[in-house]
């Protein structure tokens, strides 16, 4: 089993796509797990789960949506790539959960930066325990921004992660039962067209402490969140290298400038201007002004001549 995982990971490391044979093999292996961990599988085994004193909430945790998982960033991996020991028997070993791989086992290099950023975040400061990667990133569903079909899809997914806890009810959350959150609509009252912003931009575009333009895992609270409109509403918008980073390169090569990558998906005042149109309009304005100025000069000269 471990050998097969290694082969798949090697294939990714070499930058190649998995072969159809490998994908079929992964699919076959995962089907065994999803036989129980799908909605149908769980329903069939509900009676059995009840005898094991499983609550329905607990049963929900065991659910993996096959369609969503396959489309996720981990969708081309075997379940046993992360669920390594004690999961090949049923019922699974009670200690098996402890053996599930941590994110940093694979994302090692990224973690050198992410971990440091996370420890400075409001989440790490607020919660000494209980807050982990999977609190936000559901490993069975999460699809990285670069793999999303559109920027809007990335915005929807990422904002949904935040809203899981920060919904606009003002209610407390299980991680912080004593605290009551301010209403989102109230704390963002300063933002023009807030609904439009939440559809088109991710919460983290403002709620991160980002040195430079790259996104950070140092999520910040409202006190430290950005209120710099031109960070997005300008031709050098941070959005270009965050939300649209994966498309900037191809855009530069094909069109020579970057604006139209957002132009096709959403209109952002200040950021989505057409540079050719801008240059032409400035040129035309200069021409018109020169015409009027020249005419005025001739008029003044003639007036002076008449005075003499």
């Amino acid at each position: 089993m471990a050998t097969r995982v290694t082969r798949a990971e090697d294939s990714r490391a070499e930058g190649g796509a998995l072969s159809p044979e490998m994908l079929a093999e992964i699919s076959r292996a995962n089907a065994i797990c999803l036989d129980c961990h799908s909605l149908v599988g769980l329903e069939l085994r509900l009676q059995e789960l009840r005898t094991l004193e499983f609550s329905l909430e607990r049963a929900e945790e065991l659910l993996v949506e096959p369609g969503a998982f396959e489309l996720s960033s981990h969708g081309e991996m075997k379940c046993v790539s992360c669920h390594v020991k004690g999961f090949d028997e049923h019922p699974h070993d009670s200690e098996a959960r402890e053996e599930i791989k941590w994110c940093d086992d694979c994302h090692t290099r990224a973690f050198l930066v992410i971990e440091e950023q996370f420890f400075d975040s409001v989440h790490a400061r607020q919660f000494e325990k209980g807050f982990s990667c999977s609190t936000c990133h559901d490993p069975h569903r999460f699809l990285s921004r670069d793999q999303q079909p559109s920027a809007r899809a990335a915005v929807n997914q990422d904002n949904a992660m935040c809203l899981t806890c920060h919904e606009d009810s003002g209610a407390s959350h299980e991680l912080a039962p004593q605290s009551r959150q301010p209403l989102r609509s109230v704390s963002h009252a300063w933002l023009p067209n807030p609904d439009l912003h939440w559809e088109a931009a991710r919460c983290v575009e403002c709620h991160v402490n980002a040195e430079g333009k790259l996104l950070s895992h140092e999520i910040v609270d409202s006190e430290r969140a950005k209120r710099e409109c031109v960070a997005c509403h300008s031709s050098e918008a941070d959005l270009l290298v965050r939300l649209y980073k994966h498309r900037v390169g191809e855009e530069r090569e094909s069109a020579g400038f970057m604006n139209s990558i957002i132009l096709n998906e959403s209109y952002i005042v200040g950021a989505t201007r057409n540079q050719v149109l801008d240059e032409l309009s400035v040129l035309f304005a200069v021409l018109v002004l020169s015409m009027f100025s020249s005419h005025a000069l001739v008029r003044v000269a003639r007036w002076g001549w008449r005075q003499r």
């Binding site: 209120r227 409109c229 031109v230 509403h233 300008s234 031709s235």
Partner: peptide, 22 residues
């Protein structure tokens, strides 16, 4: 000011320009 908004150019701060323009 809104159309050519950037960190280095603004006849008026973006948020104020939005309000005045509206």
């Amino acid at each position: 000011s809104l159309h050519f908004a950037s960190s280095s150019f603004a006849l008026l701060r973006f948020e104020h320009a939005v309000t005045v323009h509206n």
